[in-house]
Design a protein around this nucleic acid. Structure first.
Lengths: 336, 336
DNA sequence: AGCCGGGCTTGCAACGTTATACGTCCGCAT
DNA sequence: ATGCGGACGTATAACGTTGCAAGCCCGGCT
């Protein structure tokens, strides 16, 4: 049986509250008393019951993190960063994944499984603004990632349009003129997503034409999706001299197809990804990528939740995290 | 303010307990009453307070999963599988990562942060048997992975020795005779780990010599470690014709180095990894790998925890999960 | 008519903790 | 000596839920 304050109190011959005071380092406790109680605690191996503490205090010390899929290394790395950031504040992280499915995202945002949590960090994919508008839950919610809602919630992300423009600019500066975009969302009600928008804007501002034949949609965001999309473009007979992919796995899937078809990266086709996952650092051709500052994103997300919990930060804010473009072999060639 | 049973009861004009009965689908409730209460619940937007429920019931519905690092896609994919398996039983998953550091693993196994959990699934790296022997926590613990303790805890893993032998056998069958092993643990007190043991056993049983110069240790288990280790082997002047890596990231890091030095995979060096992560399916050269049945591992881990929670399964058991060797280009060449 | 039993509802206690408010004791200033 | 304030310890009441046992009501049986 678990030992409770009551048991310790009985053993030490003091009241329950005094034991509680010792446990919580309440200041008005004589050293002698403190030691007596501490000894009883040690002898019995007492450990506080957090559930009870949380019931009493109305807080659980748990933050939920809901991501589309852990299989994507970007999200896995982000999850690790969030866990660490939360630990700094003595919070622990409950992890959920939504598969990027709207239905699941709605459930999570409504607090579905997790009536145990103090706050929620959600990285939505299909979730619509109306879903959030209907949200009745009152645990603090912080949004991550590319989607962009005009709603009173904190939102943390890199400036996707600007970041995408930087990536495309890099390709144009290399002299590329036919820049494909791989990873648009199929049949999505929302205005084309921000990275696609950045691609478009940068092409236009460089005086290049925007050619829908160079946009490939994907079902998901994995290697296989990138490979399939690249294949589709090539099968139309198009021969782009550059590819900007929605993320790194898609870029790597595309590079695989290029290599299968005997097209060289970067000589024939330069490739830029997004997220800067470790995997991209070690391929036969390493991948140029936009690198969001994951640690900063994680830190700011956790801090936003906590700020809201403590009633600070009344104004919902959009926070831009840092990013940089890291050029590697897929746009520069191998440096031997 | 959150609405509680009391508020609903007041609204519906019934007792708290009756509302509780409705919420819990207690059978002796008249349809009329059920409807009346349900209406009050809906109007007020009542949601049960799980903390209170758990305090009352002594269970939290939360399982902790402690992994070495999420950055390794194998663990990320495993985490996803565990979350899904737990969800089937209405359990949610608290995630922790230990960095594979003994100190952290001890903390976790002692229930460190998580006095909130019903059970713990731990994938240890450096943890020693003595650490577990001193364990005082009484929440069920299930161990995952390669380490192997002679202690009364459930343990779930693939048969690493046999799996490693299968991988090495595959290389030998291709006619390779100089098979390097990359990813041994540096300065580890425990007998050389099981995959290394399998490598050794299979070489011996094939009548080949076991050459310590072909064993490379690593600090961690990432791409960079594999690359560094491969570099070290090559710099001794050795030219193995095959590599068996502790896991896929190490294998991929090694392949990168081979490619930098102009050695072809698989023609000059055949490579086999372990874990079958998605990344390996899409490199310029796809990676042959041992594929553990992650879903099965996750399922069995969760079920073991739950069985122990409900007092079943008195005998701690070691369970072997399925695995298969999936041959790809890194041992077969590109099929086109 | 009275009793019994089962279906339905309820009051109470308890899970383990902390906040509040109070009581006691001591030392010090008056 | 008396009064006062601060330091220290404690009793009690919550937090929101569910298990238990008891109570009520009604139909059917004796």
């Amino acid at each position: 049986m678990r030992v409770s304050l009551k048991d310790v109190a009985a053993r030490a011959g003091v009241s329950i509250k005094t034991v509680s005071n010792v446990v919580n380092n309440y200041q008005h406790v004589t050293p002698a008393m403190r030691e007596r109680v501490q000894q009883a605690i040690d002898e019995l191996g007492y450990r506080p019951n957090l559930t009870a503490r949380h019931l009493r205090q109305g807080r659980t010390g748990i933050i939920a993190l809901a991501l589309p899929e852990l299989g994507n290394p970007y999200f896995a790395e982000l999850a690790a960063a969030v866990i660490d950031a939360a630990a700094l504040h003595d919070y622990i992280v409950l992890l959920d994944h939504t598969g990027g499915r709207r239905e699941q995202e709605v459930l999570v945002s409504q607090g579905f499984r997790a009536r145990v949590i103090d706050g929620l960090i959600l990285s939505p994919i299909e979730l619509e603004a109306e879903d959030l508008r209907e949200r009745t839950e009152n645990v603090p919610l912080v949004l991550l990632g590319e989607r962009h809602y005009d709603l009173p919630y904190d939102h943390i992300a890199v400036d996707n349009v600007a970041a995408a423009r930087t990536a495309v600019r890099h390709l144009i500066d290399l002299g590329r003129r036919e820049v494909a975009f791989i990873g648009a969302r199929r049949g999505h009600s929302q205005p084309a997503h921000l990275r696609l928008q950045g691609w478009r804007e940068e092409l236009l501002s460089a005086g290049l034409s925007v050619d829908d034949g160079l946009i490939a949609t994907t079902e998901g965001w994995g290697h296989a999706d990138g490979a399939a999309a690249m294949t589709r473009i090539l099968e139309t007979g198009r021969r782009p001299d550059a590819v900007f992919a929605y993320n790194d796995p898609i870029a790597i899937g595309a590079m695989r197809v290029l290599s299968e078809r005997g097209m060289r990266v970067p000589e024939d086709v330069a490739v830029v990804g997004f997220d800067d996952v470790v995997e991209g650092h070690f391929g036969t051709v390493t991948l140029t990528s936009v690198s969001p500052d994951k640690e900063a994103i994680a830190r700011m997300a956790v801090e936003s939740v906590l700020a809201r919990l403590s009633g600070q930060a009344p104004e919902p804010r959009r926070v831009w995290a840092d990013y940089r473009l890291i050029a590697r072999e897929s746009t520069l060639g191998r440096s031997t």
